[in-house]
């Protein structure tokens, strides 16, 4: 049985990775299982300099989901390169570094700094709804998205995944824009901007007022967007949004995702990723599928 998939020339042993920001740099979850079972680890977004992030409360629970406004707290690229990358190198998995920035120049600087590092892929976050400058500003305008993609691609040594925001009217247009900019792959969805109000205290649940909604509640929207994006571009698509188990992951794969990321599910089931990998294998066995690639985009209309 083959579970290998290839993203921009990088072969993953299986299509399951972790979603940026939900898994740190893997250290905490390595206390539960060997990270070597994963297709890849995607790290928390890293910027040029350390960012403090937003005030607390940074999260709130919602029905079958949660909202977060962490605000991209990160230790800056230098500490990340000297501590987090060497840690991840100890495991037999691919390393995908998620990059954030407040300006086009900052993205480019971080990507340059990573050029000599043993990193397999870069994921560029142009879709964070929780920072005031940068982030989503690039992710909601096709022209800006294309421009960041091009600038990053010019500076990057590793293949580039552009991470798209669902907070747009036409996801296909955004997908095509980053493909035109030279993206080697795209990933989606980042969180959907939401708001929660505490009616007892008549105040916002989050200090940031708004936050990004994630978890099972957003899955149908994510599957739809992955389907639309996969049909709009020819580069591989990495799907995410509410995946908790193999059947969720398989929906994304059938919709057109070459790989999937598990985010919020890690919080209530630290074993969500390895269980998903196992579950995909049993599904393939049951359905007599010998190569996972047969499943990618294989969804069809009801007979």
């Amino acid at each position: 049985m083959n579970t290998e998939v290839t993203i921009a020339g990088v072969t993953l042993k299986n299509p399951v990775m972790t979603a940026s920001g939900t898994f740190g740099s893997g250290e905490e979850y390595s206390a539960f299982y060997d990270l070597g079972c994963l297709g890849a680890v995607v790290t928390k977004g890293v910027a040029l300099t350390p960012w403090e992030g937003n005030p607390t409360p940074r999260i709130a629970e919602t029905h079958s989901g949660m909202m977060n406004a962490i605000g991209l707290q990160n230790p800056g690229i230098e500490l990340f390169c000297s501590r987090d990358i060497p840690f991840l190198k100890r495991f037999d998995t691919k390393i995908i570094v998620n990059v954030c920035g407040k300006s086009l120049e900052e993205y480019v600087e971080v990507v340059r700094r990573l050029a000599g590092e043993p990193v397999d892929l870069l994921e560029i976050n142009i879709s964070c709804p929780n920072v005031k400058v940068g982030g989503i500003a690039f992710g909601q305008d096709p022209k800006a998205a294309e421009a960041v993609t091009r600038a990053v691609k010019d500076a990057a040594r590793q293949p580039v995944i552009m991470k798209l925001s669902p907070n747009v009217t036409d996801i296909a247009e955004m997908a095509r824009a980053v493909e035109a900019g030279g993206a080697d792959a795209i990933s989606l969805i980042n969180t959907l901007t939401g708001m929660k109000i505490d009616i007892d205290r008549q105040c916002f649940a989050l200090a940031n007022r708004t936050g990004g909604v994630s978890g099972p509640a957003i899955k149908p929207i994510a599957v739809r967007m992955v389907y639309q994006a996969a049909h709009a571009v020819s580069v591989p698509v990495i799907g995410m949004g509410g995946i908790t188990c193999a059947s969720d992951a398989l929906e994304f794969i059938l919709a057109g995702a070459s790989a999937v990321s598990i985010g919020t599910a890690n919080f209530f089931n630290p074993y969500a990723a390895p269980e998903t990998i196992e579950g995909i294998r049993s599904y393939m066995e049951q359905k007599g599928v010998s190569d996972i690639r047969e499943l990618i985009g294989a969804v069809r209309d009801r007979a």
Binding site: T22, E28, A31, T56, I59, I70, T264, N266
Partner: peptide
């Protein structure tokens, strides 16, 4: 959210 140091919520 995670309770173990990964998500930076707390």
């Amino acid at each position: 959210a995670c309770g173990i140091g990964a998500c930076l919520a707390c």
